[in-house]
Computed example of a mutant assay.
Amino acid sequence: MKFPKKLALAFAFSITGTVPLAAEIELEGSRLIVSGMLDGAALPEFVMHVNNSRVRTVMFDNSTGGSAEVAEAYAQVIRSKGLSTEARGQCQAACAYAFLAGKEHRFGRGGQVNALLIPLPRRPTPAELATGGWRSDEARHAVAPAPMPATAAETVNVAAAAPASASTGAPTPASDAGPAPAPAKEAWLPGKGMLFTSTPTFFGRVYNTYYCDGNQGADLSRCERVSDADPYKLGVLTQ
């Protein structure tokens, strides 16, 4: 699958850190534009504008990450005020979570390529796509990935398989081992999840959906195309 060059470049910048590190807020009439990472630095200003002006729409402009807690804070304000949201350019992870909180949510107009990345641990099944179960709270906890190193994951798995006695180092019987350690969670990788794209053409915009496993780097051609995943049918876009 051949990806638009502009989208590939923007995605490459987002995973290598060549993006604004802190959010910036700009008010344009009834539209409040949020760009950069949702790290909490601009949250007070965001709340001030929403409370003191006639903001109707929040536009996320090339926002490529942030923390789960800050994303939820933005989402709560958007929901409580009944605001609509737009995504222009890149909107990934924390941005995607806040974007979906809008009363109506759509891609921005114009000639740019738009891309929305919703973090997910694996590719959804057709049944999950049909029922909406793929957009669970699990995605929220993945908006600020903290990958577990392979060595750490292996250590947890080994300890779970054979807990040792403190005195001899021998495996301890299951009855004496106490509660079993929790299984290691799959590492979250930057750029991992469902990717919805909107590309302008002479005949109107073309929408595509992919699942990226996080190992593709800047090579989006390695992301897997997801058929029958129209963003409007899935409720990712509403207008």
Rank of each mutant, 00 (worst) to 15 (best):
R88G: 13
L43I: 10
C95Y: 01
I15D: 12
V55K: 06
G82S: 09
N51K: 14
P44M: 05
L27V: 14
T85G: 05
F60T: 08
Q92T: 12
A87T: 05
A71Y: 00
E28H: 11
A87I: 03
D61I: 01
V70L: 04
Q92V: 06
G66P: 01
A42W: 07
E86Y: 12
V58K: 03
A96W: 00
F46Y: 02
Y97E: 11
A96P: 02
V58W: 06
A75H: 10
K81D: 02
E86T: 15
L83T: 14
E28A: 14
F46M: 07
R88M: 11
A73E: 01
G65E: 00
S67G: 05
G17W: 08
G82N: 06
A94I: 02
M48R: 15
A98T: 06
E72N: 10
E72G: 13
L38C: 08
S80G: 10
E24K: 15
S67K: 04
F60N: 06
T16I: 08
R31L: 11
R54I: 10
V50E: 02
A71M: 00
A98R: 11
L27F: 07
A68K: 01
A22Y: 14
R79H: 05
T85K: 10
T18G: 07
V50R: 03
G89P: 05
D61A: 13
N62G: 00
F46P: 09
S35F: 00
E86K: 14
G36L: 05
T18W: 14
G36K: 05
L38W: 00
E28S: 15
A41G: 15
A23V: 11
T57S: 07
I33Q: 15
E24C: 03
T18E: 15
T64K: 02
G66F: 00
L43M: 12
E45T: 12
M59D: 13
C91I: 11
S30N: 14
R56H: 15
Y97H: 11
A87Q: 03
A42R: 11
Q92P: 08
F60E: 13
E69S: 13
V19Q: 08
V55S: 04
E86N: 09
G66W: 01
V58F: 01
R56Q: 12
E24I: 09
R31K: 12
L43F: 15
E86F: 09
A73V: 02
T16H: 01
P20L: 09
H49I: 08
A75E: 09
G29H: 13
S67Q: 02
P20I: 02
I15Y: 05
A71S: 04
F60D: 00
V34R: 07
I33P: 05
A93Y: 02
I78N: 03
S53A: 13
G17A: 06
A42I: 12
V77W: 09
K81V: 02
N52L: 01
E69Q: 07
V50W: 07
F60G: 11
V70R: 05
L38A: 06
I25Q: 04
I78W: 04
